[in-house]
Design a protein around this nucleic acid. Structure first.
Lengths: 350, 350
DNA sequence: CTGAAAGCGCTAACAA
DNA sequence: TTGTTAGCGCTTTCAG
């Protein structure tokens, strides 16, 4: 069988309903200026024939493609998939994104793009022309890559920047990292800790900085010094270990530590065990991300939950309904929450 | 800005290279009958202008859509995403599927479909006409849903049936469940177990049956009776608990149990703990799936790893390169392996 | 080996 | 309120 032709097209519906193509098109797209009776008749034919529009054809004629592109960092995503460590970022994106897309007759396509690459523009540009998406969702660290945001803006494609609050084209969205970090810090301080360390993420993620600020605010508000208590990691296990080591080797060591990823926190847990420190008796730990595995460590980790599904769902909604024009210039914020488990306890008094 | 038009089309390339549209098209599609010099010239223009074909247009003109649809069970998939228990089935599908698609200039779109639904055909049919995929990947339990396979066959769309070895249209593929179950059984028998229980999956999954067979073969080969040692679950935690209870309450209880999912095995682990049974000293456990969490239980679980990524990658490959016509009628088998961890030990002698 | 013409299914612009 | 016309960007005939 050679070329596949569409079984039932708008033509068949038009013929069946005894109206013009255009009228059918209007009904499909819920456009005004169709008498209810007509609309009814057309709807009936559509149902009867089991007609569904071809999105390729719809796109061709200059209208929407009904496609939303969700862009993730290639390297990190593939590494996570390979490592099989339970990182469910992509799953949560799909949960929020796919389902919301489906509600509007859209599909979501996941695309992996290399940020640290000379030809990001080529790579992304090709995906954009090939797919012609009606909207794009950028996740860190792409959200703040000017090559990417610039390209999107230039092409006039609506997009959302997750984890970016800078002004400029695209819908800025944040999971309120600053607030989350502060909540976590306050939780620890309320437990009596005065030496609360913080392990930040890499600098090319803006949210790394916001989290530091939230932590600092919490410490400042309680009048606690914190100059020596901030370290950096790259979200990975090894880096968490190194950072934790420094924090514990301080003359006046941290008694509680907040780390910016589950892997880093797990590394701290392991280090604590090696050193004979009990968690939470000798050391309290708070994690960021709340991926599945944190419930299975011993003790399970208290963690900041990132509302990924809700954020992506919101992004899709905005992209589709407002065609990317936000009603406000303010960043959209979807806040996370602290999930308390067994890794935090009262500070041992000196 | 109103209608979005393509910036650089085949026309521009043709003009730039001073050839006809047709010639450019031939070059793009690697068709024969183009003089090398021409081809070179066209390629240069393509590069220079940064041209990428629009897949919508390609599809419209009756050629490929460069889209592969991967279909999963809606209910189960959403439940897994919501539960956040580390099930990384979808991630592994993407790892194998997306990357292989990308190698061939294809994209993979994940679609959720309700099997237990009167209008499966409507639902899937709509997706097929909307997207016009060049190939479809069916996962259990869709792989053996005649409404689905029938529809695909009728429309002449190439498809792969993961976890289905029945003859018929579509590429049959299996992860060798029977073999895996047998390996697991033999492993336990080699450790001295004579009462090896088995907790199967639901009946609408063929692979449930294959696993039972593999286990039976292993038991038979060792001359061990097993009539009372097989129970069924639904892959979920609760069902695993119930099944395990029955196996442990036998007059001559199981000393080792293989369960068809990680959740069911985790349930057994918990039950064992409650009953004061040590794993692996008093009870040995083998799981199926090998999702991330099994490494974090205590003890970590010995598990059969399902080569999802490899299988999906293979499916995509076959779909794209052979346009769905397998070279053989035999099912394609991609075998899993037993990953040994701490949940199995020698049988305590009576 | 290369090119010109026709059309895929749909919608925007215009006319009635 | 409805219908007509002209493409969208590409590939398939079919001629040269």
């Amino acid at each position: 069988m050679g070329r596949r032709r569409q079984a039932v097209t708008i033509k068949h519906v038009a013929a069946d309903a005894g109206v013009s193509l255009q009228t059918v098109s209007r009904v499909i797209n819920n456009e005004p200026n169709v008498r209810p009776a007509m609309k009814e008749r057309v709807r009936a034919s559509i149902d009867k024939l089991g007609y569904t529009p071809s999105i390729a054809a719809q796109r061709m004629s200059g209208s929407r493609s009904y496609l939303i592109l969700a862009i993730n960092d290639r390297e990190r995503t593939i590494a996570d998939w390979r490592a099989r460590q339970g990182t469910d970022w992509v799953d949560q994106m799909l949960l929020g994104g796919m389902l919301t897309c489906a509600e509007h007759g859209y599909r979501m396509i996941v695309e992996l793009v290399d940020t640290h690459n000379d030809h990001v523009e080529r790579e992304l540009g090709a995906a954009l022309t090939a797919l012609q998406p009606d909207g794009v969702i950028l996740t860190p660290p792409h959200s703040e890559n000017p090559l990417i945001t610039g390209l999107l803006a230039e092409r006039g494609i609506p997009f959302a920047r997750i984890g970016s609050i800078a002004p400029g084209p695209g819908i800025a969205m944040t999971m309120d990292d600053e607030h989350s970090a502060r909540i976590a810090t306050e939780h620890l301080i309320a437990l009596g800790h005065r030496r609360v360390g913080f392990i930040a993420g890499p600098e090319d993620y803006s949210l790394s900085g916001w989290r530091i600020e939230g932590w600092q605010q919490g410490m400042d508000a309680a009048g606690l010094p914190h100059d020596d208590l901030c370290e950096r990691g790259d979200f990975g296990y090894e880096s968490g270990r190194e950072a934790a080591r420094r924090l514990l080797d301080l003359a006046d060591p941290a008694t509680a530590i907040i780390a910016s990823s589950d892997q880093m926190t797990l590394a701290m847990l392991e280090l604590a065990r090696e050193r004979g420190l009990s968690v939470p008796d000798d050391l309290s730990l708070v994690s960021f991300d709340n991926t599945p595995i944190v419930r299975f460590s011993n003790p399970p980790l208290t963690a900041v939950d990132q509302p990924i599904a809700a954020t992506i769902a919101r992004a899709v909604e905005l992209l589709i309904t407002h065609r990317g024009k936000p009603q406000t210039d303010q960043p959209i914020v979807v806040s996370g929450a602290l999930v308390k488990r067994g890794s935090c306890g009262p500070a041992a008094h000196a």
